[in-house]
């Protein structure tokens, strides 16, 4: 990183994005060179949440409940952090520069607002490959997939983060009753994500009433950087929000 914290804004003391130029896409299929925890019990969450998790005590301490998959610059996490101050949440992002930015952003926010933002953190990982290395069965209550890479070509559909096979792994990590939130500004991808979820035996759509009652739904398009960009340009968004259920066997 740059020295003397030159990347921090002089007025807000938050990191500035232009010092974290990143590529828009990253190949999820390539072999990873970053460290991956052997299993969920090998992740030291006290490093992520120093005020809320004590490393020595792994059984009784709080566990991460929200996961923002492909968190980007972390807009949603930051909004959720104050909305659910008691819940631990983590962002997962494949691009190292972006992860770096979110890390700095959280640290700066913690410094500026003592006692707040202690419940958010970020890791650099490929969540399409390593979800089971981070979360135990039924550990999560919410998963977010906001404005994922659309991968238009049919031959690249297997790179999409929502796919029938990967939903099996998300259903494993989510507890019964947990909710999966997806949103995109690409109509074709919106239809794809909706049909994958609708066709999966372990998910059911939320009713209109439930969607209106859920405070998180409004954040999907307003809190994220991508969502703001879309509304600036007057674009349309497509949501698919589903609940994890016990499959009927």
């Amino acid at each position: 990183m740059l020295e003397n914290e030159a990347y921090l804004s002089k007025t807000t003391h938050l990191p500035r994005k232009r010092f974290f130029r990143a590529r828009a896409h990253s190949n999820p299929l390539s072999d990873s060179h970053f460290p991956v925890p052997i299993s969920p019990s090998h992740v030291d969450y006290s490093l992520h949440y120093p005020q809320l998790v004590v490393s020595s005590d792994t059984t009784s301490s709080k566990k991460v409940e929200f996961a923002d998959i492909g968190c980007g610059f972390g807009g949603l996490l930051i909004s959720l952090a104050t909305l659910f101050p008691e819940t631990l949440m983590i962002g997962m992002e494949l691009r190292d520069k972006v992860t770096e930015y979110v890390k700095e952003r959280i640290l700066a926010l913690r410094k500026a607002n003592p006692g707040q933002y202690q419940n958010v953190s970020v890791v650099r990982t490929n969540s399409m490959k390593y979800i089971p290395n981070y979360f135990q069965k039924a550990q999560l209550s919410k998963m977010f997939f906001l404005f994922p890479d659309p991968h238009f070509k049919e031959k690249n559909h297997r790179r999409r983060v929502i796919s029938p096979y990967l939903l099996d792994e998300y259903a494993y990590a989510l507890r019964v009753g947990g909710i999966i939130y997806t949103i995109t500004d690409v109509e074709e991808l919106g239809e794809w994500m909706n049909s994958c979820l609708a066709g999966h035996p372990m998910f059911e759509a939320l009713t209109q009433k439930e969607l209106e009652a859920d405070p998180v739904v409004k954040l999907l398009s307003s809190a994220t950087e991508e969502g703001q960009k879309v509304s600036r340009n007057g674009g349309q968004t497509f949501q698919a929000i589903y609940r994890r259920i016990t499959p009927i066997s």
Binding site: I38, S39, P164, S249
Partner: peptide, 21 residues
């Protein structure tokens, strides 16, 4: 993975992952 009664429709229910290697 739980082996379903209708395997042609997919095996979606993951029972566990054995992680340690």
């Amino acid at each position: 993975t739980a082996f379903p009664t209708k395997p042609l429709e997919g095996a979606h229910e993951i029972q566990s992952f054995c992680l340690g290697h």
